[in-house]
Design a binder for these strands. Structure first.
Lengths: 235, 235
DNA sequence: ACCTGAACACCGTTCAAGT
DNA sequence: ACCTGAACACCGTTCAAGT
């Protein structure tokens, strides 16, 4: 049996390329793209599989479950972080803030990943590097071991919570105007409360609803945390 | 057409009692019970409806959507909080910590509610009272208005994040031994890292994995935050 | 006005069967 | 060893129809 001339013999190479084997990396690639395009809720095992032109069951040969995939997404998103300026004990507080800013930046660059990071205990290469960096800075600030260790837990907790809050607003179909309208409504609601029962709420309705988005609120938080940590330094 | 004697005429009253009208309150009651029994993931519109012996569509006459139901659960869970000791400017830091402890207590008493609280902006009666209380304490500590306002945002953010982390572990089917085994495994993993690359991670593997559950970690966090806030006091 | 059944468009995960 | 189709047991929300 011969092949007719216009029907090429299916070459081995293209066939392999057309259907590259599934790998963890390709799964994370596809999930990451979905995360960026559609946010956290857009990342489902089914949609990731569809993106890879296969069924959801196929993913389970490479990824234990959705939780593990979430973890891999967090690692991928934070892979870009790096801290190469040497630890300067005189500037440990500012350098610690820089770590927190880098963490928030990594999450903001991949909207939705904060949601995936919330329950995760990241143990990858990058997580270890970040932990090492934070511990070095905290020890430079003369914090006791246990305080330094707990701080390493507190810091990502705060940054992740902030990033998550930000994406809750933006992930839904709210426009900037919607958010503004919501904030304005909230301000009016607070200002309209009975001043005899909630005097400070009424008086501070403005400050209470300002800087909800933007960096001021985050900068406030990292300033409070850093100052609070500095207060724990050993003589 | 007559009724046969042994077939009673269906009485109006029992029929009405048998099927009490759906109300917001009854919906929240049922949801709260599900939350306590099965955790956050056990609370679905469908299951709440089933508990009330109706279909999921019926709930939408009283509750806008799942997000609103979540909000109502948070309000219900925190309804028990009350702060009746007068603000004592000399003890504002300790009193602020008490507010945070009360918040965590309310969430712990209703495992799963932290998950519902994460995205919510609570605006109910109890939320206003708590906000007023915190503002009073912060002003007693001489914080500027904007700092006090942002602190009112930071504090629930932290407490909710802690409570949520706690329920992530307990909500799954993990036993206390499972958690212990996981922590021990994590400690071994950290201690086994290359000491030349991650010296502090290796050296502090113990402290890094201690107090993961329990109050020490939370107490550390509220101490850091309170001290950091105190550092912002105006002369 | 309130309630309902049924449908729509989804989920994560498992499993027997294929290659 | 890896992949697949089909199924299982679920979701939140909408809508036309009933009372």
């Amino acid at each position: 049996m011969t092949h007719s001339p216009w029907q090429p013999i299916t070459p081995a190479k293209p066939a392999r390329e057309r259907k590259a084997p599934l790998t963890r990396d390709r799964i994370v690639d596809a999930a990451m793209e979905l995360l960026r395009k559609e946010g956290y809720d857009g990342v489902s095992m089914r949609k990731v599989a569809q993106e890879l032109k296969t069924g959801p069951a196929s993913l389970y040969a490479h990824v234990a479950n959705k939780r593990e995939l979430d973890q891999l997404l967090v690692e991928r998103a934070t892979a870009g972080m790096s801290f190469d300026d040497p630890v300067d004990p005189a500037r440990w507080q500012e350098q610690l803030k820089d770590v927190m800013r880098a963490m928030l930046g990594a999450m903001r660059a991949n909207p939705g990943v904060a949601r995936a990071a919330i329950g995760a205990v990241p143990t990858g290469e990058r997580a270890l590097q970040t932990t090492e960096r934070m511990l070095a800075l905290l020890k430079a600030g003369n914090l006791p071991d246990q305080a330094a260790a707990w701080a390493v837990d507190l810091i990502p907790l705060y940054v992740t919570a902030i990033a998550f809050e930000e994406t809750v607003q933006s992930a839904s179909d709210w426009t900037a105007e919607d958010v503004e309208a919501f904030v304005a409504g909230l301000r009016a609601y607070l200002a309209g409360q009975p001043a005899d029962r909630f005097p400070l709420v009424v008086a501070l309705a403005g400050p209470l609803t300002s800087g909800a988005s933007g960096d001021e609120r985050f900068e406030f938080g990292i300033t409070v945390i850093t100052a609070g940590l500095a207060a724990l330094a050993q003589s």
